[in-house]
Lab assay of single mutants.
Amino acid sequence: CLCSQPSVTRTVQKDGPNKGRQFHTCAKPREQQCGFFQWVDEN
C-alpha cells in the first residue's frame, strides 16, 4: 500500500452490485489507513 506495508485482501460484505467482490486495502486500523484501495480483478 502507500505506507510501504503489505496490503490485505478483503471481501465486500454489504449488499449491492459489489457484494462478494475482493479488494486490496491498507492493513492499518481504519483511523490510521493511508487510503490505498484496489479491486483484485482490476490488477
Rank of each mutant, 00 (worst) to 15 (best):
G20P: 01
K28Y: 04
Q32W: 06
R30G: 12
Q22K: 07
Q32P: 00
G20S: 05
G35P: 03
E31N: 13
E42P: 13
F23P: 01
F37M: 13
Q22A: 12
K19M: 07
K14V: 12
A27G: 12
P17Q: 09
Q22D: 05
K28E: 03
E31F: 07
P6L: 05
H24M: 13
K28Q: 14
R10Q: 15
P29E: 10
P6M: 01
F37S: 06
Q38F: 00
D15I: 12
V12S: 12
N18E: 09
Q5S: 11
S7K: 04
F36M: 04
F36Q: 05
F37T: 08
F23I: 03
F23Q: 03
Q38I: 06
P17E: 07
K14T: 11
Q33D: 06
E42R: 11
F37V: 07
F36G: 02
V8C: 11
P17H: 12
A27W: 03
D41R: 09
W39S: 05
D15S: 11
H24R: 15
T9E: 02
P17F: 05
D41T: 10
G35V: 01
G20M: 03
C34H: 01
F37P: 02
C34A: 04
Q32D: 08
Q33F: 02
G35I: 00
F37K: 14
K14H: 13
A27L: 00
D41V: 12
C34K: 01
T11G: 07
R10G: 15
K28N: 09
Q38P: 00
Q32M: 15
R21Q: 06
F36C: 05
K19Q: 12
Q33A: 14
F23E: 00
F37R: 08
K28M: 04
P17L: 03
D15A: 10
A27Y: 05
R21M: 05
D15Y: 13
G20T: 02
G35Q: 09
N18W: 07
D41P: 12
E31S: 14
G35W: 00
Q33M: 09
P29K: 13
R10T: 10
Q38W: 02
W39P: 05
C34D: 01
K14D: 15
D15F: 03
S4M: 09
G20R: 01
R10Y: 10
F23K: 00
P29A: 10
R21W: 02
Q38D: 04
D15P: 13
V12H: 09
Q22T: 12
F37A: 05
D41M: 01
D15L: 06
C1V: 00
V8N: 07
F23Y: 15
G16A: 04
S7L: 13
F23C: 09
G16S: 08
H24Q: 13
N18S: 07
E42G: 15
Q32R: 12
Q33V: 04
G35F: 00
D15C: 07
A27R: 08
Q38T: 09
Q33C: 11
D15R: 08
P29R: 12
Q13P: 05
Q22M: 12
D15K: 09
F23T: 00
W39C: 03
G16P: 01
K19L: 08
F36D: 05
E31V: 06
K19P: 01
R21H: 07
N18P: 02
S7T: 15
G35M: 04
S4G: 08
Q38S: 12
K28R: 10
K14S: 14
E31C: 04
R21C: 03
T11M: 13
K14M: 13
P17M: 06
G35L: 01
R21Y: 00
G16V: 03
Q38N: 06
F36V: 00
F23G: 00
D41S: 15
G20V: 00
K14P: 05
N18H: 06
Q33K: 11
N18V: 02
E31G: 14
K28W: 01
C34T: 01
H24E: 15
N18R: 04
K14I: 12
P29V: 11
E42A: 15
D15W: 03
P17S: 09
R30F: 09
S7R: 08
G16E: 08
D41L: 06
Q38M: 10
P29C: 03
Q32I: 07
Q33S: 12
T11D: 10
H24T: 11
K19R: 10
P29G: 04
F36S: 05
E42L: 11
C34S: 00
S7A: 06
Q38R: 11
H24W: 14
P17R: 08
K19I: 08
E42F: 07
K19Y: 10
E42M: 11
Q22S: 11
G20W: 02
F23M: 01
V12A: 13
C34G: 03
K28T: 00
K14Y: 10
F23R: 00
C34E: 02
F23L: 02
G35K: 13
D15T: 11
R21F: 00
W39G: 03
G16Y: 01
N18D: 14
R21K: 15
E31T: 08
Q5E: 11
G35E: 13
V40K: 10
Q5K: 04
S4P: 03
S4A: 05
W39E: 09
V8D: 02
K19F: 13
Q22W: 05
F36K: 04
A27I: 04
N18A: 07
G20F: 04
E42S: 13
K28P: 00
G35R: 09
V12G: 06
V8R: 11
A27H: 01
V40L: 11
T11W: 11
Q22F: 06
Q5D: 05
D15M: 12
L2E: 14
A27E: 01
V40S: 12
D15H: 11
F37Y: 10
Q32T: 11
R21V: 01
Q5Y: 06
K19N: 07
K19D: 03
T11N: 06
H24S: 08
C3S: 00
G16M: 06
F37I: 06
W39K: 09
R30S: 13
V12W: 13
T9R: 15
A27T: 03
T11P: 07
T9V: 14
C1F: 01
W39L: 03
V40N: 12
R10D: 14
